[in-house]
Structure formats: C-alpha cells, structure tokens
C-alpha cells in the first residue's frame, strides 16, 4: 500500500508538468458521463416508467453503477492500458523488480483526469439517493456500501480479464469493452429491463445483476433482505479472473528488444 502511495505521488508529479492538458481531460471526462444523464432525463420526459421502474429509481441505479465503475477504474486503470505495457516491453521491467506483479501493474497507470468522472459519479450518486424517495435505514446504507464494494471488485475483475487477454494477443481486444464500458452504459437501467436471458447471463456468468439489480430491489423494498448480501458473492468473480491472469503470465513471451 505504501508503494502504491509512492507511485501515486510520482504520477501526480508527472502530470503537474502538463496543466492545461490535465484540466481539459478532466472536463472531458466530466462531460461524457453527463451526456448519459441527459439521455436518461429526456427519455423519462416521454415515458414515465420503464419496466416498472420510475425515473428516480433509475437514477439511483445509475448513480450507484457509475460510482462502482469509476472506483474500479480509478484503482485498476493500469490493467486497462496493459496492452501497450506488454507491447512496448515495459512488462519486462516489471518482472525484474522484486515486487508483486499485480501491485506494480495497478500502480503503473493512475489517471488523475478521471477525477472529472469521479466527481460526476459522486454528484450522480448523491443526486440519485436524494431523488430516490427511499426511506434510508442503517441496513440500507450498509447495503449501498456493500454494492459499491462488490461492484468495484466485479468491474476490476473485468479489467483483469482484459489485461490477461493481452498476454495472448499482445493487444487489448475491443470487444472486451462491451463488458467494461458497455456494462457501465447498460448499467444505467436495472438489468431486468433487457429481458430474462440477459438477467440470467448477468446473474450466473458475469455477475452484474448481483451488484446492481438484486440489491436495488432490496433498497426499493421489493426484494428479500438477503439480496443485499449478493454483492459479496459477486466478489468471488475475482477468483477466475486472477486464475486467467496467472495462466496468461505463464504464456507470456516478451516483445523483442
């Protein structure tokens, strides 16, 4: 953790040299997700409900999903840019250092311009919670915390898979974005609106529903209390992700010198 802190400071020192670029990309990141909010807003001006969910409920859902994703992205960004790390041979450098490889990859890229997105996510999160009309209890607040944790882990797991694939292809695969950025976009609505099949897929294969749909039902008093604990089960998703990573490491052939 101390080492992560040191890397954090180094990244901070590096970007301080490029002030304008930093501010502009912060702003850009902020505006991108603001766009999505406008999308939701205008749609609900025409339709008052989507599959039984009201405007305020969808906002709550999206606020939480966005914050989950952003947390994962802020910490695990290194995995997202891992393709270029492998191609440029930087991974060799990581391997000749006496530290855990995953820790080094995590600290390899920390993007501060995501602060814009984090701010946006927090604003949406607070907005969603205020608008939701949920009567908050300690249990429900805890449920939200568990959702954030589980969600961040699941999204981070997707980044790990994305990175592990780079070992085989030497390049990140664009289709993986369906599961990362795509999931964030789809995640603005509770998963159930996409139909039963998608819900099943997102429950048993890639556990998005466990961090979003089911605990949301609990928050809205429509689900059973144990739904609130499902995000913890979703954390198990990390296990196969890390196994794939280990397999990839063994497959690694470094780029020429």
């Amino acid at each position: 953790m101390r080492l992560y802190g040191k890397f954090f400071v180094m990244h901070l020192k590096s970007i301080m040299g490029y002030k304008t670029s930093f501010l502009l990309s912060c702003l850009g990141n902020f505006l991108v997700s603001f766009n999505v909010f406008l999308g939701i807003h205008f749609m609900f001006r025409r339709f008052s409900r989507v599959e039984g969910f009201t405007y305020s409920e969808v906002l709550l859902c999206w606020g939480i999903t966005l914050l989950e994703f952003t947390l994962a992205e802020a910490f695990a960004r290194g995995f997202d840019t891992f393709g270029s790390v492998v191609r440029q041979g930087e991974f060799d450098r990581i391997l000749v250092r006496p530290r855990n490889v995953i820790l080094q990859v995590l600290s390899g890229h920390i993007e501060f311009s995501r602060i814009g997105r984090v701010l946006q996510a927090i604003v949406m999160f607070v907005f969603g919670i205020r608008m939701s009309g949920v009567r908050w209890t300690t249990a429900k607040a805890a449920a939200v915390a568990v959702m954030l944790l589980g969600g961040a882990v699941v999204f981070a797991g997707m980044f790990v898979i994305y990175a592990a694939i780079c070992f085989f292809t030497l390049e990140g695969l664009e289709f993986m974005n369906i599961f990362t950025d795509g999931a964030r976009e789809y995640g603005k609505y509770p998963v159930s609106i996409y139909g039963k099949r998608v819900l099943q897929l997102c429950t048993f294969v890639v556990p998005y529903a466990l961090i979003q749909y089911y605990p949301l039902l609990y928050l809205l008093d429509r689900g059973k209390p144990w739904y609130a604990l499902l995000p913890l089960a979703a954390c198990l998703f990390m296990v196969p992700c890390l196994l794939l990573w280990r397999l990839g490491m063994r497959h690694y052939v470094s780029a020429g010198s």
Binding site: K13, S14, I15, Y18, R93, V96, R97, P98, N100
Partner: peptide, 21 residues
Amino acid sequence: IEHVKNIGVVFGQRTQLWWDV
C-alpha cells in the same frame, strides 16, 4: 522475487526512469 533482488538490468534501448520527473 528473491532472484531479482540480487540483479540489476540495463536495457540500452529502454528507459526505467520516469520521463517527466
């Protein structure tokens, strides 16, 4: 991990120094 504590590696064509600091 044990091994690399005892070695130093210089790749002439790649840098291990941070570019901007």
